[in-house]
Amino acid sequence: MSKTVVVSNVTKKFKMYKKPAEKLLDIILPKGYGEDFYAIQNISFEADQGDVIGIVGVNGSGKSTLSNLISGIIPPTSGTIELNGEVSLIAIASGLNNELTGRENIELKCLMLGFSKQDIKKLEPEIIEFADIGKFIDQPVKKYSSGMKSRLGFAISVTVDPDILVIDEALSVGDQTFADKCLDKMNEFKERGKTIFFISHSMGQVKKFCEKILWLEYGEVRDYGPMKEVLPKYQAFLKEYKAMTKEEKKRFKEQVQLKQSGKATPKKELQPTAEEK
């Protein structure tokens, strides 16, 4: 099986500024200025054709940053991401213009994705049918409910037939029937050998759909492997995390902050604290 996504040693560093003036200093000074924040630290993994990879992790673990990196919205600070094929990101209401109608948004989005006039003519009815929002297709998007927005967004991203699909929590707003419809479509993609990244907090959906799990913890890969092996570990961790006392949680967060500000080389310094326990 051929590799579709190869992520090697990718790091994404954000700068945190206290004042806007610091941003200016950061641009001017050769060494830069401001506090570092590592949203993603030295991540490497590979994905094959036909893989459905669930990305899980608690809030702030870098899931969305990773999805933005894979879909090319933001460039990595260091490291490389190799992609073989077109990527499409589906996030809630991504890239829809509120003033335009659904139909106009379809054309706009397709144009921006680089489709020709003829292609768009062909795709439009398919998208409208999949979105299934009836008369609202000719209403401005600002009048849509959040469910409708995500339906339209999903319909567009799915119909343009990408090779790699990144779904960022987009299914959590749709109702059950639409979620099922989407899952059907994604299963079809899976069979056709496309790579899908699925980001969700809903363990049910992940379990039903994913084959592999990428567990992120504060910007690093905690575990990557088949769903059956990794997911129980993650669920166990969640349980443990919930059961932590306030003190423990606080200490955990402090470690994390230290880690993400790039001051500590992660694993080595973590060990002593683990022994303390």
């Binding site: 213009n97 106009e104 921006m112």
Partner: peptide
């Protein structure tokens, strides 16, 4: 060029829609 023309039409539409 075609993309530019279509996008500018939409831009005009968005501006004067309200």
């Amino acid at each position: 060029f075609y993309l530019m023309m279509r996008l500018s039409m939409y831009e005009l539409k968005i501006k004067n829609n309200n």
